[in-house]
Amino acid sequence: MKSETRSEIRDQIIFIICFIIAWYVVYKMRVFSPTAFPSVGSIGESFVTAFTTNDMLSYTGHSLLLIAKGLAIGIGLAFIFSSLAVISKHFHAIYNLIVSICDLLPGVALLPLAICWFGIGEITIIFIVVHSIIWPMSRSIMDGFSSIPRMYIESGMNIGLRGLKLVTGVYLPAAFSSVLSGMRVGWARAWRGLISVEMIFGTTSSGAGIGWYIMMRRNFMDMSGVFAALIVIIIIGVLVEYGIFRTVENRTVRKWGMVQ
C-alpha cells in the first residue's frame, strides 16, 4: 500500500519534470511567439512578483473567502434538503425533480438573472457558488442514501432512532463516502464557477478575486502573469484535495473500512 503510493508520487514527479523540460524546449525552438508562450523562467518570475508586488495574496484570499461562504451555505442546504427528502416521500419526489432540472443549468447562464436580482456584488457571486454546489451535492447525498444497506436502517430503527435522528445517526455516516464525493464534485464546480464569474464581473465593492487578476494580466498582455495565476488556482485545488478531502477521507471512511 505505502510503496504503491510512493511509486505513484515518483511517476507524477517525473512527469512534471518532463513537462517542464518539454515546455523549455518548445520555448527555445521559438515555435510560438514568446508573448503567447512565455518561458518557464518568466512564469516563475511572474509567480513571485504576483505575490510580492501585485498583491496576489489578497486576491486569493478574497476568492477563498467567497467560496468558503458559498460552500458553507450550499453544503448546509444540500444536507437539509436531502435529509428532508428521506423523511418525506412527497418532498423526495419534488426535490428530485428540482435537482434534476437545476443541475443542468450552468451557473454562468444564471448570471444575468442574478445580477438583475442581487446587483453586482458579493451576494451574486455567493448565489452562483451555492448554485454550483447544492445540486451535485444533493444528488450524491440522495444517491448515497438510497444505496445504504437496509440492515443499518433497521438496526437504527430497532434501537429507537426515527426521523431526523435516524438521518443524522445512520443515513449520513452510512452514506459518507457518497457525501464526500459529492463535496468533491461540488467544490470543483463551485471553484470553476467562481473564477468565471470573477472574470465576467471584474471588481466589486467588496474587492476582487483571482479571476479578476487573470483578466487584468490579459489586458496588459502579460501571459506569464496569466500562467502564474493559473498555477495559483491549481495549487489551491491540490491543497484542497490533499489537505482537506484526503485527510477527511483517511479519518473517516478509510478508518471505518468503508472504502478499499
Binding site: 438496526s155 429507537g160 473517516t252 473500512g257
Partner: peptide, 20 residues
C-alpha cells in the same frame, strides 16, 4: 406496532454493526 428496544433483533449478516 413499530420496532423498539424491548425487542432487540440480531441478524444473520455480519454487517449489522455500524462500521463508523
Amino acid at each position: 406496532s413499530q420496532p423498539g428496544i424491548d425487542r432487540m433483533m440480531i441478524f444473520q449478516t455480519f454487517e449489522q454493526l455500524f462500521p463508523w
